[in-house]
Design a protein around this nucleic acid. Structure first.
Lengths: 136, 136
DNA sequence: TATTGTTATACTCTATAACTATA
DNA sequence: TATAGTTATAGAGTATAACAATA
């Protein structure tokens, strides 16, 4: 019965994928959520913490902690906005951009390894099905 | 880039599926891991905590906490083994079996709702792909 | 009034390591 | 010596609620 439930299979698959992620990225010590944040900041430099939180589907307070961690490692920075003194423009530092490039390489290798049991077509199919699951 | 990574899509999908699970089962207050444990115990009555942990892919100490919670709610019980005084045979109580039947109904409705955006064939396909992901 | 970022707090989930009692 | 269960502890991840500064 359990094996017919999408939620159960999702969780089991995610645990294994997460473990492989940690093994792969281990030495850099960047958590999956931190990698996601860096990728989003890299693609949308200058966004606010609230926008980042909304994009990632987490609470604003979570974005604060995420940026705190990245700032501590000098990977991201809070730049005061000239137009709205409540908000910061979040950007990657030079070190952050270099680290992100390195991370992307590692994560692609990780993703290939984790999906090695699928054909390229099946991998595309899985991605498409998962997207539809969380988009509608 | 993020949208091409299976791990990222897995996590996003799982968050949404988890939220729907909580909404559906909410009043019964049985966590996903507790439901998984009850289902496994129901299908394998008398198994040990170590076997349960191995089946679920968690640590033995996690199984203790899981069974503690189920025992507190009178859904499961530890029966001393007559042959090996180190182990317990874990079983569902009558209340546990009744609750499990009720839960299975709710979880099936939840799973149908969460996969409503997929055709039956696609749902089968997704399940098969996820299984292969965590089995090989 | 509403919004941004922040802090404090708490709760879930899980792992590690050390312990005990049995085998 | 090895194994089953247990406990204490710690860490990641996340949410809620309240607050100050600013709009």
């Amino acid at each position: 019965m359990l094996d017919d439930i999408v939620g159960y299979r999702l969780r089991r698959a995610q645990v294994l994928v997460y473990q492989d992620y940690v093994r792969t990225v281990g030495s850099l010590d960047i958590r999956p959520a931190q990698f996601a944040a860096m990728t989003i900041i890299g693609a949308n430099p200058g966004l606010s913490q609230t926008t980042l939180a909304a994009t990632m589907g987490i609470d604003r307070s979570g974005a604060v902690i995420l940026i705190d961690a990245l700032e501590e490692k000098a990977l991201a920075a809070r730049v005061p906005s000239p137009v709205d003194r409540r908000t910061y423009a979040i950007v990657l530092t030079d070190k952050g951009q270099a680290t992100l490039a390195q991370l992307k390489q590692l994560v692609m290798e990780h993703d290939d390894r984790v999906t090695a049991c699928l054909t390229p077509e099946e991998r595309v199919q899985l991605n498409a099905l998962l997207l539809r699951l969380y988009q509608g």
